[in-house]
Design a protein around this nucleic acid. Structure first.
Lengths: 341, 341
DNA sequence: ATTTATCGGGCGCGCTCCGAA
DNA sequence: ATTCGGAGCGCGCCCGATAAA
C-alpha cells in the first residue's frame, strides 16, 4: 500500500495514464474501459460516457506494446524501400503506405541503401518488430537474394522485380513497355535503333533490355551495341559519346538517362529529334518540360504499389488473391524527342 | 496443468519462442538469457555459449513489445514526411532515417498528404506508437499549425520551416540562398529581375520570396510583379506566359518551375539564356542536364536531415544541443541558363 | 565468516480474454 | 443485460541464493 502511494506521488513526474487510472476515474473496472475502447457491445450508454470523459480528461492512450504483447499481433506491415530519390520507388512508397494504412495496418518503413549488408540489417530490424507481412520495393537483385533466406511463413510481396517468381510480385509489364517504345520508333521509320540500358543489377533493367532486343529482333532490325548506364542523368550524358553513327534513335532505360543523353547529343552537335530520336522510360514529372519534351513510356508506380498491398492483405486475411502476380500496363506518351526519320 | 499441455501441443502451430524456451534449452533460467541478451557482465563464457547456441537453434528473437512494456521505452522516433516525390524532402527523409538508426533509435516513418486532417491522423498514429521524439519534414504551414497543439513534453525538431521558431528547427539559410541568386544576376548586369515564387502555404517559399525582394530592393532594383507557382514544372510552364517584357532574368523558387519556365519561354520564342536568364533553387539531379543546364542554388538536404536528428538526439539524451536552430549554407551552381545581359 | 562471481525466483509493466457475479 | 476479478502475454529488474575463493 505504501508503495502505491509513493507511486502516486512519483506519478507527478508524468507517467502515462493506464487503463486503471481511467477505470478509477470513471468508477468502473479496467475491463469496462477495455470494452468501450474496443467497441464492444453491452455497455450502458451512461457508463460509456463516464469512461469516455475519463479518457479525454486524462488524455489516455492505450499502450500498443501491452496490447501487442497480449494479442501477439502487431498489425504492422514492413516496407523495405531503397534509399533513393528516384521517382518510381518514391511514388510507389507513398502509395504503399497509404494502402497499408487504409487496410487497417501500420506501415513500418525502412529505407535501405542498396547493398546486401544494409538490406540484411533492415530485414532484421523489421523482423525484430514482429511485422506480420512485408512489402519490398525491390528493383535490385541483391534485395531479392536476401529475401530468399527469409523465414518461411512471412507473407511477402515484391514490387518491380521484373519476372521474378519466388515471391508474389507486382510490377509494370516491361515487355509491353519495351514493345510500345520500339514500335513507336519503327512506325516513325527508324531502323538504326540503339539501346541505353540500365544496370543489370536491377532486374527490371535486364528484363527491359531483353524485351527491347527481342522486339527489335522480331522485326529484323540489326542490333547495334547496347550501351549501359546506372540510371543517372550523368551516366546518360557519358553514354552520349558512344552513340553509334548508324543510330537514328535511342531507347533509354529511364528518363534521367534520356535527359543526360539528349544533353550530350546536343553538346556533340547532334540535334534531337531531327538527328536522333530519343525515347525514355518512366515519365518522371520533369520529362514533360525537358527540351525537347521527352517521349517516354509512362508507368503508374502508385498503382503498382496499391495492387501489391491489396494482394498482400488479401493473402494475410485468408482471402484468395485474385492473381498472384499483378502486372500494370504502361502507356506511351509521345512528346517531341522523337520524330520521323 | 492440462491447459499447459494443450498449449504445448498448440505450439506446434509455430508460436514464437520465448525467453523461457531458450532458457530451458540452455539449461539456465530466463534471467540468464536476459543477461546475455543485454550484454551484462558476470556470465561464465561457457554459460553464455550455451545460451547463444540455444538462441541460434531456436531462431529466438526478443519480443520488442514485451520489452517496451517493461522498460516503458520504445526507442522509436517518429518521422513525419510529406507524401511527395520531391527531391528535397525525399533526400532529407533518407538521411533522417539513417541518422536516427545510427543514433540507436528506430525511425517510425509516416508519409502524409499535405492537409490538416491527414497530418493530424499521422500525428495521432505516431503518438499512439509512443514515440519518444518527433522529426517533422515540414515545409508546410499546415503541418506546423498542427504541431502547436501537441503534447508538450515530446521533443520535436522540424526541417525546412523557414524561420519558424516555436519548435527547434533545421533548414537551409534561405536568405543566403536568395542573396546568392540575386547577386549572381546583378553581377551579370541584369536589372530587370522578376521572381517566380512557390506557394505561400510553404513557409520556405514565403521566406525565400521575401529574401529575394529584400535583396533586390537593397540594390535599388525596381520591382516587377511576382509570379507564383505550385512548385511543379507545369506551373512554371504556365508562368512562362506571364514573364514581364522588361525582365531579362527570372529567379525561380525551385528547379522544377525553372524547367517549366524555360520550356515555356522557348515555346514563346524567347531564348534562354540569350534572351532571358533563369536561375533555379534546389539543384535537383536533372538540373545539370536540362537544356540549357540550369544555374541554381544548391541545397544539401541530407545535411539538413542529419543535423536535425543530431540536435534532437542531443536533446533527448540530455546533452545540450550545440545550437537550437541549425542553418545549412547553400551554394550557387553556375551553369548555362544564366548569361550576361 | 566475508567477499566475489554467477545464477535463479518472483513481481509487475498495461493490456485482453475467460469465467463468474 | 452489464459489469467485475483474475490470469497471463514476454520481458527486465530487484533481491536473494549458491558456489567459489
Amino acid at each position: 500500500m505504501a508503495s502505491r502511494i509513493v507511486c502516486a506521488v512519483t506519478d507527478a513526474t508524468r507517467r502515462a495514464p493506464s487503463m486503471y487510472d481511467v477505470a478509477a476515474r470513471a468508477g468502473v473496472s479496467h475491463q469496462t474501459v477495455s470494452r468501450v475502447l474496443n467497441g464492444f457491445a453491452g455497455i450502458r450508454p451512461e457508463t460509456r460516457d463516464r469512461v469516455e470523459t475519463a479518457i479525454a480528461d486524462l488524455g489516455y492512450r492505450p499502450n500498443k506494446a501491452a496490447r501487442a504483447l497480449v494479442t501477439s499481433r502487431t498489425r504492422a506491415i514492413g516496407v523495405l524501400a531503397p534509399a533513393t530519390t528516384d521517382f518510381g520507388p518514391t511514388s510507389s512508397l507513398h502509395a504503399i503506405e497509404r494502402a497499408v494504412r487504409d487496410a487497417g495496418y501500420h506501415p513500418l518503413i525502412t529505407s535501405t541503401p542498396v547493398e546486401a549488408e544494409a538490406v540484411r540489417a533492415s530485414l532484421e530490424f523489421l523482423l525484430d518488430q514482429s511485422i506480420e507481412a512485408l512489402v519490398v520495393i525491390a528493383p535490385y537483385r541483391v534485395v531479392l537474394d536476401e529475401l530468399r533466406d527469409l523465414h518461411g511463413d512471412l507473407p511477402i510481396v515484391a514490387l518491380q522485380t521484373g519476372e521474378f517468381s519466388d515471391v508474389s510480385a507486382a510490377g509494370i509489364d516491361q515487355v509491353a513497355g519495351a514493345r510500345l517504345a520500339v514500335r513507336h520508333l519503327l512506325d516513325l521509320g527508324h531502323r538504326g535503333i540503339q539501346q541505353l540500358a540500365g544496370p543489370d543489377a536491377f532486374i527490371e533493367a535486364a528484363v527491359r533490355r531483353r524485351a527491347v532486343d527481342d522486339e527489335l529482333h522480331s522485326h529484323g532490325i540489326p542490333k547495334l551495341p547496347t550501351l549501359t548506364g546506372d540510371w543517372s542523368a550523368d551516366s546518360g550524358y557519358a553514354a552520349g559519346a558512344l552513340v553509334d553513327n548508324a543510330a537514328t534513335a535511342v531507347v533509354c532505360g529511364n528518363d534521367q538517362m534520356a535527359l543526360g543523353l539528349i544533353h550530350a547529343l546536343t553538346d556533340l552537335g547532334r540535334r534531337v529529334p531531327q538527328g536522333v530520336s530519343v525515347v525514355g522510360f518512366d515519365d518522371i514529372p520533369e520529362s514533360a518540360h525537358s527540351l525537347p519534351p521527352l517521349t517516354t513510356v509512362h508507368q503508374d508506380f502508385e498503382e503498382v504499389g496499391r495492387r501489391a498491398v491489396h494482394a498482400l492483405v488479401a493473402r494475410l486475411e485468408g482471402r484468395d488473391a485474385d492473381d498472384e502476380s499483378v502486372a500494370v500496363t504502361p502507356e506511351l506518351v509521345v512528346r517531341a524527342s522523337t520524330a520521323a526519320v
